[in-house]
Design a protein around this nucleic acid. Structure first.
Length: 425
RNA sequence: GGAGGGAUGGCAGAGUGGUCGAAUGCACUGGUCUUGAAAACCAGCAAGGUGUUAAAACCUUCCAGGGUUCGAAUCCCUGUCCCUCCGCCA
């Protein structure tokens, strides 16, 4: 949520900034609602004041044993007028709130203009894609003997799911373990375990609702709950409505969770293999920081995700998302894209974002600063990494022309020290 | 699933219809004392909004939403969550 004070002060400037994201802010609509709000609020509050003063005098008169009948008559129709004003006010307030909740975060000044991912700007590359002396397969063909089984998953559940067997299932578990250990032991994150089903307040808090409702799996029950699309939701919402001490910052959490996405609107995209699934594993880093440090933190957070790719010896590149590709909540996002030999291109494996105070304002996640004042924290998160896609990247980049893949040094301790892993066992 | 109890400031915890936004304690901030610290003592200390150069002033908020009343933290209804006991259970 944007700061409504900033919107009041200069709606045109905000509208201009939002245009970079491809969002059209109707400033005239906003101004009209705002003026109505102001008028109704002051009217309501005046009536309320009148009522409070008179009610109080009734109480005092009664305490002194005086006759309160004349005073009661005086209050007369006040209640009715107040109810009417209140109703109108809450209506316009709701209207304003709805509008405010649907306005995306402002992109940072350094975010490049552009419409979609083709306009993203490459920051740097790391590693060199391997030259194969045979034609590399994709991960689906590599595991056709049953390690990755999409047909069986389709029978059990439908399209965009996978059954993993034997060493493939173990590989995913090993990667998860390695990432968690790395972030906790090397990068100073605290591991957390959280619920994977969350309520609507949590979804609103991190900004998935109301805008992205169609991307979520809603649970069919009495209360409105959802499967999480990312651990960002439960982990960040730990701090919803909390006032932290400045000394508590920065807070760094890492969390492994399954992620559930309906992938509405991506029909026909990445239908083959494990790139785009309704259910996948992810290790997520979440930070709550002092507002002064969030931009530095975006760099270090991105570095933490890069550290995993480097340890796994996977070639990747970092790109800055352009305005049109930026998510609803993000002020700036750096994507890490891993090299996939079968596709001959880099594909997203991590997304690191600074949300500034946008989520914190929705969440009311705040801290008391040294002067004793209460301020909103800044929130950030990044995948470290998407585990399913890391399995794909590892398979494809480390394939050999027999049924084994080689295992990078960093991962060997998690697989019993083996140098090679059979795809058939 | 059955029975009962509860939700109040950063935390703990009083408050059952009227100067209650709310006692008290802890924590925190400032001061006195001290070589320094601790202790003791004094003072300050909820959030959000309207408003103002700044203040003052005003409004809202005691889990959430409805209701009763001139007036609700307090009474009534509904919901959510927590606790205790019984049952069931990975």
């Amino acid at each position: 949520m944007l700061d409504i004070k900033a919107l009041r002060a200069d709606p045109e400037q905000i509208a201009q900034a939002l245009a970079i994201k491809g969002y059209v802010l109707d400033t005239q609509q906003f101004t009209e609602i705002e003026e109505k709000r102001k008028r109704l609020q002051s009217e309501t509050e005046t009536l309320q004041n009148e009522r409070n003063v008179k009610s109080k005098s009734i109480g005092q008169a009664k305490a002194k044993g005086e006759d309160i009948q004349p005073l009661l008559a005086l209050v007369g129709d006040l209640g009715e007028r107040l109810d009417k004003a209140k109703a109108e006010f809450s209506l316009v307030q709701e209207e304003q709130q709805t509008l405010l909740m649907s306005i995306p975060n402002l992109p940072h000044a350094s975010v490049p203009a552009g419409r979609d991912e083709s306009d993203n700007i490459e920051l740097h590359k790391w590693g060199v894609p391997k030259e194969f002396d045979f034609t590399p397969l994709d991960h689906v063909d590599m595991t056709a003997s049953g390690g990755l089984d999409f047909e069986t998953a389709a029978k059990i559940s439908g399209a965009r799911y996978v059954v993993m067997r034997g060493n493939l299932a173990r590989l995913q578990r090993a990667l998860t373990q390695f990432m968690l250990d790395h972030h906790t032991q090397v990068n100073g994150y605290q591991e957390v375990y959280v619920p994977f089903i969350v309520n609507a307040d949590s979804m609103r808090g991190t900004g998935q609702l109301p805008k992205a409702a169609e991307d979520m799996f809603r649970i069919n029950g009495e209360t409105e709950t959802y499967l999480i699309p990312t651990a960002e939701v439960p982990v960040t919402n730990i701090y919803r409505g909390e006032i932290l001490n400045e000394a508590d910052l920065p807070i760094r959490h890492v969390c492994h969770s399954p992620c559930f996405r309906s992938e509405a609107g991506s029909y026909g995209r990445d239908t083959r293999g494990m790139i785009r699934q309704h259910q996948f594993e992810k290790v997520e880093m979440v930070q709550l920081v002092h507002p002064d440090t969030s931009w530095d933190t975006l760099d270090t957070l991105t570095g933490h995700a890069e550290g995993i790719l480097q340890a796994l010896e996977l070639p990747y590149r970092a790109v800055t998302l352009c305005g049109g590709d930026l998510s609803f909540t993000s002020a700036k996002t750096i994507d890490l894209e891993v090299w996939l030999p079968s596709q001959g291109q880099y594909r997203e494996i991590s997304s690191c974002s600074n949300f500034l105070d946008f989520q914190a304002r929705r969440l009311q996640a705040r801290f008391r600063n040294e002067a004793g004042d209460i301020e909103l924290v800044h929130t950030l998160n990044g995948s470290g990494l998407a585990v399913g896609r890391t399995v794909v990247a590892l398979l494809e980049n480390f394939q050999t022309n027999n049924d084994y893949i080689t295992i990078p040094d960093a991962l060997r301790p998690y697989l019993g020290g083996v140098q090679q892993l059979s795809l058939n066992d």
